[in-house]
Design a protein around this nucleic acid. Sequence first.
DNA 1: TTTTCGCATGAAAACGGTTACAGAGCGATG
DNA 2: CATCGCTCTGTAACCGTTTTCATGCGAAAA
Lengths: 386, 386
Amino acid sequence: MARDERRARGTRSAGRTSGEAGAPTGGIREVARAAGVSVATVSRVVNGTAVVRDETKRRVETEIARLRYAPHAAARSLITNRTSTVGVVLPDIWGEYFSEVIRGIDLAARQAGYHVLVSSSHSDAAETRDVLRAMNGRVDGVVVMAPHASPRALSSAMPAGLPSVFLNSAPGGADAPSLSVDNRGGARAMVAHLLALGHRRLALLNGPGSNRDAAERRRGAFDAARAAGLAAESVLEIQGDFAEESGRVAGEELLRRSPRPTALFAANDSMAIGALYALRRARAAIPADVAVAGFDDVPIARFASPPLSTVRHDIRSLGERALARLVAEIDGRGDGLPAREVLPFHLVLRYSTEGIDTETTTEPSRPPRAGAPTPEPTTDRRRKAR
Amino acid sequence: MARDERRARGTRSAGRTSGEAGAPTGGIREVARAAGVSVATVSRVVNGTAVVRDETKRRVETEIARLRYAPHAAARSLITNRTSTVGVVLPDIWGEYFSEVIRGIDLAARQAGYHVLVSSSHSDAAETRDVLRAMNGRVDGVVVMAPHASPRALSSAMPAGLPSVFLNSAPGGADAPSLSVDNRGGARAMVAHLLALGHRRLALLNGPGSNRDAAERRRGAFDAARAAGLAAESVLEIQGDFAEESGRVAGEELLRRSPRPTALFAANDSMAIGALYALRRARAAIPADVAVAGFDDVPIARFASPPLSTVRHDIRSLGERALARLVAEIDGRGDGLPAREVLPFHLVLRYSTEGIDTETTTEPSRPPRAGAPTPEPTTDRRRKAR
DNA sequence: TTTTCGCATGAAAACGGTTACAGAGCGATG
DNA sequence: CATCGCTCTGTAACCGTTTTCATGCGAAAA
């Protein structure tokens, strides 16, 4: 059946001068026959790997154009063992975040001469493994973001000898390099900002329990609380799931509390925006009654009402860096480089915590050394044009 | 050089019981040797293409797991002539629009058992051709969106015999099927809506001249104007480039005009939002002084101030349909299907034209027959919850 | 003239799978 | 006991390239 299909696609064309109509291979061989040269010569013309006499070359090029010949990538990579393609494995191609990661990867890949093979929406570890399997032989390496799977499980799911880079994975265990957003540092800085504004009754709106980013953001928030001398018990924790709706629910929940928290830090912007919605609906003044902050700086954060203070991390550059690192790995230049890289973040302070209508942004935090606590970035108030 | 790399990656392991350490092939052959069977048997176990004795199967599976063997996709697709991959060629993975298309494609692809190979940010026709070339042999078919290239040029750039589907390309010329958003119908309906509100002095904010979507939206707008008996000369046209900034500039321009237009239709939401910004800044009342409408219904349209009336077309389903069509093409079931499909749209009416704080949405317009003019959808005012 | 190059080209061996075909083993049937 | 049929497994051809190695040929060197 597959065989029949194949035959069906072969570009049939009778032999040239010699009348033999047999073997309509339809690939490089057909070009070779048409141009009256050997396949080796055609290959040399296509790749420019050796010098070919001018007239021969022209003849070959003519036939290539006429037959619309394009080399079969699979065959080529079988022998060269290079695909010029990198794989990207993501939980989803969902909304702002992931599409931005992909975009960063794609941009960098293009520049480095690689294609990008995406695979997304795999929910569990088994599916991730299958996807990684399927990538073997069609990519030179993979960028993997699997917030659920343990790095150990991930490493063992990796086909033997396939270069890889992990995104936002847990620190230890894996033997592949990994890049991360500074979840902990960002959350720490934002909560420190809230506390510096005088807030003492803090609410935390957490992300899904299984999500690593969420867990680290929570940890960062507690770092800051502890540093400011706040008892862990005095922090109200509400469970969310990163979706806007759960933020709305949490906003209502918060309002019902009798010593009502005066500041809410949500583990991502979607939830923060949901909470803003609920709070405004209940006529709570923001930030006078409740200050709200999020994480990610998604595009609509700026347009929320009121505009949302948040932690910006450059998602695109996360993708770009990941790709650069992967290419290094593929080229065998990866050994000298650090196994773990943490990307800087900015604090973006807007009306929802500041109560004034301009936007201030901190310097990008220098990437912290792995594990070392990040001191709060010194929030220098440069007014930004818009 | 390439050869050395290849050697370097081969999983080296000494032969088993028989002491011969030679030929560390590291693929299916190594598994076969380790399990004491032939490669054919291993292949059968991997693919389940034939029945294998239970005990043999177990032995093979053990070795596969132990050696972390994953079949080499390139080798496999060389013989089967199937890659289980579809290519997607886009101008960019830019923002809301394209990421949503990709998402639709990816979702559908996953379900149909295909991988997705993206290639983006190719700017000119030559680059598109190279990209398409490079896809040959690594995909079973391609979805191409190339708003700049002529369909004729595109067809001729296509490697011989590669199934393809075009997105938003010009109607004629190509022999591949194409899917489109109903740009003309959507614009026509929105402008008809503006005119129905009583506006007579209309401004059009056009997209970039080379862009086909932009041109069709413009045409649709003029359809509606003509139908309402408006002279073409009385319509103010302003040139934009789809970017928010150009909308801002256009807004200022509009304000300077002495018979000031009372309604602005922008060819996309970004520009509409830029215009809103400029108008509000100049203290123009919206929609009392100037009504504003856009196209696309990007997520922030709802959050703009005031919320923006716009034309929604389901971008994700554009991707999904495109993929479904491509798969049909790949499976050879494409011949009976229509060569051109136009997707329905909705009118989403918000404050920026209506002046009231709720949102109404029309029924999805039935997909028009190719070329036939779309009558304005009957705007039934069902209030939507949110 | 013969030898020695260098250049342009061709023949054939890989690459790692899949699969048509043949064959071995073995119980059932005539 | 010979034959058949069934189940399982192995051998080898093939997919479309790249690349090594050999070769023919004309010009330069001896």
